[in-house]
Each structure stands twice: as C-alpha cells, then as structure tokens.
Computed example of a mutant assay.
Amino acid sequence: MNASVLAGTVSSILFAVSYLPMLLKALRTRDLDSYSLGYLALSNVANAVHSVYVFSLPPGPIWLLHCFYAAASALLLIWFLQFHSVHTRPTAPATSRRNHHEHHLSN
C-alpha cells in the first residue's frame, strides 16, 4: 500500500469515526432540530451528484468515505422526517393565547 492510499484510508476512517457520535446522538435523542429540511435535502442531492465523480475514480478509500457520508446524510434526512413531528409541538398563536387570557380576565 503506497503512502497516498494509506493516508486516504486513515483519514476516511477518522472522518467516519468523528461522524458517528453525531449520528448516535440523533438516533438516541431523536432531536434533529438543529438541522433544516433544506440543508438535509440539498446535502443528499449533492451526495448523489458527487457520486458520479467518486465512482468514476478507481476503487479506493474515497469510495468508502463517500458511501459513508451518503448513507449518513440519507439517515439524517429520514430521521428528520420521522422524528421532526415528535419534537415539533403545535403552539397556539399569540393572538389566540392573548384572547384566551383576556376572556378569563373579563369573567
């Protein structure tokens, strides 16, 4: 294994390992409020387009890293769509709360 393939392998492993705590926390807490649907959707589109380039390269560490990022992005998008409604509680509009409060004051 030459130095560039070794460096690519080590860096791919380190990048993937650094991403795992975020994925595990998102799965455990089901809290993806710090992400936006636009970011996650665009990230998945970018990974799909980038796949054309990555898979035109000879197989190597970049394939593994790209597959990991693509899978992680897809998981985050799926989890966001599944879990977002769990953390998003509908709140009454301010006018509705104010009117409710004023109603109690007038009685």
Rank of each mutant, 00 (worst) to 15 (best):
T9S: 07
T9R: 02
S12L: 00
H104L: 14
V54F: 07
Y53Q: 05
Y53D: 13
A92E: 05
S18T: 06
W79P: 08
F83K: 03
R30D: 03
H66V: 06
L40H: 02
L27G: 12
D31V: 05
P21L: 04
F68M: 05
A74S: 09
W79D: 11
A70P: 00
P21G: 08
D31N: 14
N47A: 08
A41F: 13
V5S: 08
H100V: 12
C67N: 10
A92R: 15
S106C: 15
V45H: 00
P93L: 08
F83Y: 09
L105K: 12
S73W: 03
H84P: 07
R97Q: 13
V54A: 08
Q82L: 15
S34D: 11
P93M: 07
D33A: 13
L81N: 10
A74K: 04
Y39A: 03
T9C: 03
G60A: 05
L42A: 15
A94E: 06
V10H: 01
S43P: 05
L42D: 03
M1A: 15
W79H: 10
S56E: 04
S73H: 06
F15T: 07
L14V: 09
G8H: 00
L37H: 00
R28A: 12
I78Y: 06
H104S: 09
S18Q: 04
L64T: 08
I13G: 08
V5T: 14
S56A: 12
L27N: 04
V49D: 01
P21N: 03
H84M: 13
I78T: 09
L57I: 09
L81W: 04
A46W: 04
L65S: 01
D33F: 14
R28M: 09
A70Y: 00
G38W: 08
L20C: 14
A16H: 04
L42E: 05
N99Y: 05
A94W: 15
L20E: 02
I62S: 14
V10S: 05
F80I: 05
S4Q: 04
T29I: 11
R30E: 10
V52T: 04
N107I: 15
L65I: 00
L23Y: 00
L81P: 07
L32I: 03
L42Q: 07
H84T: 12
Y35W: 06
N99T: 13
L23N: 01
Y69P: 01
M1N: 14
Y19H: 12
G60Y: 02
F55M: 09
F68H: 04
R97G: 08
L20M: 15
L76K: 04
R30P: 03
Y19E: 08
S34C: 12
H84N: 14
L37K: 04
F55G: 11
T9Q: 02
P61K: 02
S51Q: 01
T9A: 06
N107R: 13
H103D: 03
S73Y: 02
V10M: 10
R98S: 14
H84S: 14
S34R: 08
T91H: 11
A26I: 01
R97K: 15
S56V: 07
V52R: 05
W63M: 11
R97W: 07
A26L: 02
P59R: 10
R98V: 15
L77G: 02
H50D: 07
V86M: 04
P61C: 02
H103M: 10
L32Y: 01
M1Y: 07
